[in-house]
Design a binder for these strands. Structure first.
Length: 567
RNA sequence: CGGGAUGUGGCGCAGUUUGGUAGCGCGCUUCGUUCGGGACGAAGAGGCCGCAGGUUCGAAUCCUGUCAUCCCGACCA
C-alpha cells in the first residue's frame, strides 16, 4: 500500500470531543470518524484491524465447532413479542416501521431470530449439538453513548449460539467457548480476566465476562491475588462482617436537625457509620419496597432483584417515599412505616444492636434500634456491593480491585428462548425435548478500542503485531533522492513478495512528519531508508514498542522480518 | 430522563459582555528555499457564524424556539 493513496487523515490536534485515550488516538491517527453520536465510520486502517480481530475470532470459533452464518439486522416485532422482550428491552431497542406500518427493530442481539431459525430447521437429536455464529453490526440505542468505540449505538459483534440436547451438552459448549475466548484475547495481545458476572436482560444461569483491564473501563471487578477468583462487583457475594455484641438498650427518638445523610449523622451523633441502618425505597414495577444496608455499605440493585424479582427497579421518587413512610428522605427508617411494604435487609443488619435509623419524621432519628424487635424484616439476603479489601469468597485472601472493559461474555441461556419460541427436538425415544441454549458474544469493535486503551504511549498507538493494520512501514527519508527511493521500493517489493503486510511512505514529506505519523498510527515495525545506511549495506529497523533501533544486514532483512512475524 | 457546557472554513480556537457585515494557528493549493523526528518565505483557496423565527436601519453578537454534540448524574435516604 502506498501511503499517499491511503485515506488516513491524521490530525496534529486532538479533537475536542474525545475523552478517553482510545477515542483520541483512533480519531487522531485517522482510523475512525464519527457519523452521529455513537456511530462511526471505520476507515481503511480500522477496517484492517477489525478484519484481523475477526480472523482470529473465526479461527477459534471454527476450531470450537462453530459454523459461520449471517442473520438479518432487521427483525420483525412478532418474534420479540413472542419472546416477551419487545417490551422488556425498553428504549435501547431501535424500532422502526415499514411502509405497511409493521413494527421492526434493528437487532441489538440475535437470540430471537436464531431460535426462530432453529425451531424450524432442527427437529432431531441427530442435528445436535449445533453452534452457529456470525460477525455483524448490532444496534443498541444506549441512553448515553460515550468513549468513542467503547460504548457505541452501532457496533460490531461476534455472536455464537449453541444448541444442545441437555445440560451436559451445554456445559461442554460453554467450556469450549470459554477456552476459545481465552485463546482469542490472548492472541490479540490483551491483558484480560474472565470474571463471574450478572446475566442481565439476556437471562439465563451461569455467565462470565471477559474484561480487558483498563482504567477507562466502565465495569468494576474484584479479583483474588491468591486464587483464580474474579468477579464483577455487581455479583460478587459478600460475607457479612461481624457487628459488635453489646447490651441492648431501649429504643429512643432523638432530634437530628439537618442531619439527612450518613456522613452528617455520624459526625452529629459521634457514631461510626456501621451503627447506622440505611433505608432506601425502590420502585419495583408497581410496588414500593424497602431495602436496608449498613450505613457504610452500598446497595447492590442486581442482588435486590435476586430476592425480589421485577422487570424494573429504580429508586422511588421522594413523594413516594413520603407516602410510604410519612417521613422525608434523609429521615426514613423501617420502624413504624405509614404504609406496609416489604422490607429486605442485608445480612449484616441481622446482628445489629443499638442501631440508628430515620424516625420517619423530619429532623429526627431513632437510636438503639434492633431488627426483629423494633421492626419486621420480610427477608434477609446479601444485598450490598462488595468492596476491595474484603475476603475472597473462595479462599479468604484479601480481594483487589480493577476496572475493566467488557469485551466478551459467555452465557448459559438454558431453555429460556427455546421455551418461549418452542424450539424442540425429538430424541432417540421419540420424545420431544426443549433445546438447551447458550450464547456467546465478543465486541469486535470494542476489542479494537480496548487494545488501543491498553497499548499506547505519548506518541500514539502501539499495536500488538497480531492485530496491527499493517505489520511494516517502509520510510524513505527522501523520495527525491533516487538512490534512497529505489532502495526503499526494492525493500517494499521484496516484503510484499514475502507476504508481509507493508506500507511504503511515498509522500514527499520531511522525515520528521513521516516518523510522527508512523508512530501515531502504530505500525509495529518501521524500516527507515536513508543515506546513513545505504552506504553501509545495512537496514535500519525500529520496533514501535522498543526505544533502540536495530541495524540488520540488507541481504537478511526480509528473512529477519519474516521470522519476527512468524513468532 | 435530570444537570452542566458547547455549536464560527477540514481540525483546534478567538470574536458574543458593550450589535456596524469575520479573524488567528494548524491543515489545504501554487512557487521558491529546505530535507533523519510535525521546516521557512511568498502568494492563494475555503465560512448563508448549527437551524428557524423575532427585535433592529443593521445580528456571529440581543430575544424565543429548535436541533446537534460532549461531560456529569441517574443508587447511599
Amino acid at each position: 500500500m502506498y501511503f499517499s493513496r491511503m485515506l488516513t487523515p491524521t490530525l496534529r490536534e486532538v479533537p475536542a470531543e474525545a475523552e478517553v485515550i482510545s477515542h483520541k488516538l483512533l480519531v487522531r491517527a485517522g482510523y475512525i470518524r464519527k457519523s452521529s453520536s455513537g456511530v462511526y465510520t471505520y476507515l481503511h486502517l480500522a477496517q484492517r484491524v477489525l478484519q484481523k480481530i475477526s480472523a482470529i475470532v473465526r479461527e477459534e470459533m471454527d476450531k470450537a465447532g462453530g459454523q459461520e452464518i449471517m442473520l438479518p439486522i432487521i427483525q420483525p416485532a412478532e418474534l420479540w413479542l413472542e419472546s416477551g422482550r419487545w417490551y422488556v428491552y425498553g428504549k435501547e431497542l431501535m424500532r422502526l416501521k415499514d411502509r405497511h406500518e409493521r413494527d421492526f427493530c434493528l437487532g441489538p442481539t440475535h437470540e430471537e431470530i436464531i431460535t426462530d431459525l432453529v425451531r424450524h430447521e432442527v427437529n432431531s437429536y441427530r442435528q445436535l449439538p449445533l453452534r452457529l455464529y456470525q460477525i455483524q453490526n448490532k444496534y443498541r440505542d444506549e441512553r448515553r453513548p460515550r468513549f468513542g468505540l467503547l460504548r457505541g449505538r452501532e457496533f460490531i459483534m461476534k455472536d455464537l449460539y449453541s444448541f444442545d440436547r441437555d445440560e451436559a451438552g451445554l456445559e461442554e459448549s460453554y467450556q469450549k467457548m470459554f477456552d476459545a475466548y481465552t485463546a482469542i484475547f490472548k492472541r490479540c495481545g490483551l491483558k484480560f480476566r474472565p470474571v463471574e458476572a450478572d446475566s442481565g436482560a439476556i437471562g439465563g444461569s451461569g455467565t462470565h465476562e471477559f474484561m480487558v483491564l483498563a482504567e477507562a473501563g466502565e465495569a468494576e471487578i474484584v479479583y483474588c491475588p491468591k486464587c483464580d477468583y474474579a468477579a464483577n462487583t455487581e455479583i460478587a457475594p459478600c460475607q457479612p462482617a461481624a457487628n459488635p455484641v453489646e447490651e441492648a438498650k431501649e429504643i429512643e427518638k432523638v432530634s437530628t436537625p439537618g442531619m439527612n445523610t450518613v456522613e452528617l449523622l455520624t459526625g452529629f451523633l459521634q457514631i461510626p457509620a456501621e451503627k447506622i441502618i440505611k433505608t432506601m425505597f425502590f420502585q419495583a414495577d408497581n410496588e414500593v419496597i424497602a431495602v436496608l444496608v449498613r450505613g457504610d455499605r452500598t446497595v447492590n440493585e442486581i442482588k435486590i432483584q435476586q430476592l425480589h424479582s421485577s422487570l424494573t427497579l429504580e429508586l422511588a421518587e421522594p413523594e413516594k417515599v413520603k407516602e410510604v413512610t410519612g417521613g422525608e428522605v434523609g429521615y426514613v427508617g423501617p420502624v413504624a412505616l405509614a404504609k406496609q411494604v416489604k422490607i429486605y435487609a442485608d445480612e449484616e443488619i441481622r446482628t445489629m444492636i443499638n442501631a440508628v435509623c430515620g424516625a420517619n419524621e423530619k429532623d429526627h432519628h431513632l437510636i438503639n434500634v434492633q431488627p426483629d424487635r423494633d421492626f419486621q424484616v420480610t427477608a434477609y439476603g446479601d444485598l450490598r456491593l462488595i468492596e476491595p479489601g474484603e475476603p475472597c469468597p473462595k479462599c479468604g485472601a484479601v480481594l483487589d480491585r480493577a476496572r475493566g472493559i467488557e469485551v466478551g461474555q459467555v452465557f448459559k441461556l438454558g431453555t429460556k428462548y427455546s421455551e418461549a419460541l418452542g424450539a424442540t427436538y425429538v430424541d432417540e425415544n421419540g420424545k420431544e425435548n426443549l433445546i438447551v441454549m447458550g450464547c456467546y458474544g465478543i465486541g469486535v469493535s470494542r476489542t479494537m478500542a480496548a487494545a488501543v486503551e491498553q497499548n499506547n504511549d505519548e506518541n500514539g498507538i502501539i499495536w500488538p503485531l497480531s492485530i496491527a493494520p499493517y505489520q511494516v512501514i517502509v520510510v524513505p527519508v527522501s523520495v527525491n533522492d533516487q538512490s534512497i527511493w529505489q532502495e526503499a521500493m526494492k525493500i517494499y517489493e521484496e516484503l510484499l513478495e514475502a507476504g508481509v503486510e507493508v506500507v511504503i511512505d511515498d509522500r514527499d514529506e520531511r522525515a520528521g512528519v513521516k516518523f510522527k505519523d508512523a508512530d501515531l498510527i502504530g505500525f509495529p515495525l518501521r524500516i527507515t531508508v536513508g543515506k546513513k545506511t545505504l552506504e553501509t549495506g545495512q537496514v535500519e529497523l525500529k520496533c514501535r514498542q522498543e526505544k533502540e533501533t536495530r541495524f540488520i544486514a540488507r541481504n537478511q532483512i526480509i528473512e529477519y522480518i519474516s521470522s519476527i512475524i512468524k513468532e
